[in-house]
Design a binder for these strands. Structure first.
Lengths: 228, 228
DNA sequence: TCATACAGAACGATCGTTCTGCTTGTAAAG
DNA sequence: CTTTACAAGCAGAACGATCGTTCTGTATGA
């Protein structure tokens, strides 16, 4: 793995039984929360519903996550990993289709998935919830930074401007997430697909996939001379 | 006005006193709802809050809008007019700046405004609220259709393909709305501005503003021969 | 031995809706 | 032009349901 992005933490064998139980319980609850966010939306994702979906007692839930906010924050951490991480166009089967293929692939993880939709629910909710925003805002900005840096490992701008490369990918992520908001206007799935394809066509001339070896060289060069 | 898009209904002088009162009361409530959606988000926009913001009694509110859903639907109607209508790049002061200027202008109405944010709250909420979705979905699709048709009055695709023109503008609207979701990742306002500018630069070569006269001719021609 | 893991009852607060009663503008009847 | 009947506008109390949190009590692995 060439990037330094967080991954989903796994239970290690050296954990005690209790630790592993706790770990599993928390994972179950986060998973259930994610499902509820996707199915019911933020306002209808109540503790009761999560408890029911996770099939745990109220006491267990409260024990692991004393407040609802704690649960949401934990779920966000999980969602950032499962939606932003795959937004890197790493080596894939259909990677030879170029940017269009990449965009379709990324859209599937970033917006057209349970995780993507759940993340949007939290993103929208945090805008007006100051407490929640204060807690998750730093994490989001960290991720934005990391994704920006990691993207330069896979693509390069035809212009050679690395800053522009990051900007372009930020634009594309915004577009892909905006698709979730566009869906009510054009529920036809093919229309969404067409939009993604067209977006890829338009941006394709601006980008060029970077080979692994080339990456290392260019990275060093860019670091030394930070000209536009 | 060359397009056929709905406008905000005005109280006409031939209305009776009661009708005008009712009209004003409804407008006040819709306005308050919009403000609450922007400030507090969908889940914290309660009847109590709206009532307080509008400074009306609970009885008055319930009289005009028996259920909360009625209030939301009415607010959506209002928001579609005030956010989607200005998403037409009609004649403006800075229209000579080309697409970049247009995009900045549209962003101000579509996403970077109280109305834009309130609309997003409803768009996100309706995804998981079947009752609400059933009521507002037809309206949204109507608007999408109308906007698509109206856009051809102001721009034309360099390719000459009218279908592509509509597609491109749909992409740009998705991008602009996606900016609301991008904001938590990059709270720096200048970064958002930069993204809009770059988006405009990239799409500028694809579009060409259409003069009024030219519009009429082309419109007729396109109607007769619907070839790509 | 004791902190951790869990179970479940109970809390007050707030949600959206329903209901009863009072006021008032309006249109028809006289 | 008055008078009268009545629906529409409005005020506010009360409803049951559900919200998120707190609390007490029990079981168990370290």
């Amino acid at each position: 793995m060439s990037d330094k992005l967080p991954t989903i933490p796994n239970a290690t064998p050296d954990m005690t039984l209790k630790e592993r139980q706790s770990f599993a319980a928390r994972a179950t609850l986060v998973e259930a929360t994610m499902g509820c966010l996707d199915r019911f939306g933020y306002s209808d994702t109540s503790i009761n519903r999560i408890q029911e979906a996770a099939n745990v007692s109220r006491g267990a839930l409260t024990h692991h996550f004393p407040t609802k906010e704690d649960l949401i924050v934990a779920t966000l951490d999980r969602l950032l990993i499962t939606t932003l991480r795959p937004s890197l166009p790493s080596k894939r089967a259909d990677s030879d289709k170029g940017l269009v293929g990449d965009l379709h692939y990324i859209a599937r993880g970033l917006s057209r998935s349970r995780e993507g939709r759940a993340l949007v629910e939290i993103l929208v909710a945090m805008r007006t919830d100051k407490n929640l925003r204060d807690r998750v805002s730093p994490r989001l900005q960290e991720w934005d930074q990391m994704i920006g840096e990691a993207i330069t490992g896979y693509y390069e701008a035809v212009s050679g401007n690395e800053e522009d490369l990051v900007l372009i990918w930020t634009i594309m992520r915004s577009f892909l997430r905006g698709l979730i908001l566009q869906e009510p206007f054009s529920p036809d799935e093919r229309k969404i697909e067409t939009m993604i394809t067209r977006m890829g066509e338009i941006f394709n001339p601006l980008l060029r996939p970077r080979s692994k070896l080339e990456h290392l060289e260019t990275y060093q060069r860019d670091k030394n001379a930070k000209s536009l």
